[in-house]
C-alpha cells in the first residue's frame, strides 16, 4: 500500500475535481457521501469539507498499473457475483453491495472467501451461508481498500474468485409438492387435538408453498410406511412426518421410514431444539421427521433444513453435524430468528 498521490491544501482546492466520495457521519442521523467523486470543489464547499476534518485533498495522478477504487470494486463485484447475485451500477464511498436477483437460498464458499480476504488491499464481507433471501436482499459488500490499487493485486483477487466461481450464488427454491403425515395414537384417537399441521403449513407458506395432502395416523409402523409409499406414488416431492421420533416404544415413525425403503436415513442432528430430527431420502424425495420440539419451539432444526431441501440440496449426516457451532437456540422470550446466531455456523 503506497501513498503516492500529491496532496492539495484545502484552501487551494477550489476547482479541484474530487478523486473519491467524501463520507460524512452524523451519529444517529446520517452516514453517507456528502460529496461525490467527480464533484468540482466550490468556494462554498471549503467550510463543509473542513468540518469533515479535511485539510488536504488528493490530486490523483495514477500510473498505468493503478486502478481507482471505483473501477476496482466493480471488477471485484463482477468476479464474486455468481448466478442469482447482482450489484448496483455505481459504487458509493468505494463500496458495492451484492444483492439477491431473486428469492432463494444464499450460498457462499467460505474458505475461498477467507482466502480472498487474505489478499491485501481487497475485502469482502457477506451474510451467512445457507440464508434464505428475498429478491433485493443485501448479501455481501466489497471494496478495494486503498484509493488506488495495483493492477496485479486486483488481478490476484479476481483470479481467485474466478477459480472458485461462484463464490456467491443464490439457488432458486423449487415449488415442491409437500405432503404431511401426523403420527401419534393420542391424536388419532382424538384424545388431543393436532397442532402440527398449523405449524408446518405456516413454515411452508413462508416459501409460498402449501400442503397438498395431510393425514393423521396412529403409531403403527406398517400404516405409516404404507402412507409414505402412497404419497410417493402420488408424486410427493417432500414428505414431512411429525412425532414418533423419540425413544419410547410407541415412537415408530423412523422404523416406518426405513420400512418404506429409504435409501439414506440420518437420525439425530447437532441442533437444539432438534436433536431427534430425522432426514431420509427415497430416491430424490426427502422424508423428514420433525420431533415433538417442533410443537413447542417457534424455531427448530426444521427451519434450517427446509430451505436447503427446497433449494434442491440433499443434506447428509455431515451437514447435520456441521450445524453444531451455532446450533444452540437461545430460546429468547421473543424469537428473532433468522436475526440471531441460531443456525449460523
Amino acid at each position: 500500500m503506497k501513498n503516492i498521490s500529491p496532496k492539495i491544501k484545502i484552501e487551494d482546492a477550489v476547482g479541484l475535481t474530487l478523486a473519491h466520495d467524501i463520507t460524512e457521519v452524523r451519529p444517529g442521523e446520517y452516514k453517507g457521501p456528502s460529496f461525490r467523486k467527480g464533484h468540482k470543489v466550490l468556494d462554498t464547499d471549503l467550510c463543509h469539507l473542513m468540518r469533515l476534518g479535511k485539510r488536504h485533498l488528493y490530486q490523483l495522478d495514477p500510473d498505468p498499473n493503478q486502478i481507482h477504487e471505483d473501477e476496482a470494486v466493480s471488477e471485484l463485484a463482477a468476479a464474486l457475483a455468481g448466478p442469482g447475485v447482482t450489484f448496483g451500477h455505481t459504487p458509493r464511498e468505494g463500496k458495492l453491495q451484492l444483492k439477491a436477483a431473486y428469492d432463494g437460498l444464499f450460498k457462499v464458499k467460505c474458505q475461498p472467501l477467507i482466502d480472498f480476504n487474505m489478499i491485501p488491499d481487497v475485502m469482502c464481507a457477506s451474510i451467512h451461508n445457507n440464508t434464505p433471501v428475498k429478491r433485493g436482499a443485501s448479501l455481501a459488500g466489497t471494496r478495494a481498500v486503498p484509493l488506488l490499487i495495483e493492477r496485479d493485486i486486483l488481478d490476484r483477487a479476481k483470479h481467485l474468485a474466478s477459480r472458485y466461481h461462484p463464490i456467491f450464488s443464490v439457488k432458486l427454491f423449487n415449488p415442491l409438492k409437500c405432503k404431511l403425515i401426523i403420527t401419534g395414537n393420542e391424536i388419532y384417537d382424538g384424545l388431543i387435538e393436532d397442532r402440527f399441521e398449523t405449524v408446518v403449513r405456516k413454515k411452508l407458506s413462508a416459501y409460498g408453498l402449501s400442503l397438498s395432502e395431510s393425514v393423521i395416523l396412529p403409531d403403527d409402523e406398517t400404516r405409516i410406511a404404507d402412507q409414505i409409499l402412497t404419497y410417493l406414488e402420488k408424486g410427493a416431492e417432500l414428505i414431512i412426518t411429525t412425532g414418533g421420533m423419540s425413544v419410547d416404544p410407541d415412537d415408530v415413525t423412523r422404523y416406518s421410514i426405513l420400512r418404506a425403503g429409504a435409501d439414506q436415513l440420518f437420525y439425530s442432528a447437532a441442533v437444539l431444539p432438534g436433536a431427534m430430527f430425522l432426514l431420509a431420502y427415497k430416491g430424490n424425495v426427502p422424508i423428514v421427521g420433525i420431533p415433538a420440539c417442533g410443537l413447542f419451539h417457534p424455531t427448530t432444526i426444521f427451519d434450517l433444513i427446509l430451505p436447503r431441501l427446497l433449494a434442491g440440496e440433499k443434506p447428509d449426516n455431515r451437514d447435520l453435524a456441521e450445524l453444531a457451532p451455532g446450533g444452540l437456540c437461545l430460546d429468547c422470550p421473543t424469537c428473532h430468528f433468522p436475526n440471531c446466531s441460531f443456525g449460523k455456523s
Partner: peptide, 17 residues
C-alpha cells in the same frame, strides 16, 4: 445480463427453470 437462475445445481434460462 444475469437473467439466468441457479436451480438444483444447474445454471438454467428462465424458460427451462
Amino acid at each position: 445480463d444475469k437473467k439466468e437462475v441457479f436451480q438444483n445445481g444447474r445454471i438454467l434460462c428462465r424458460t427451462c427453470a
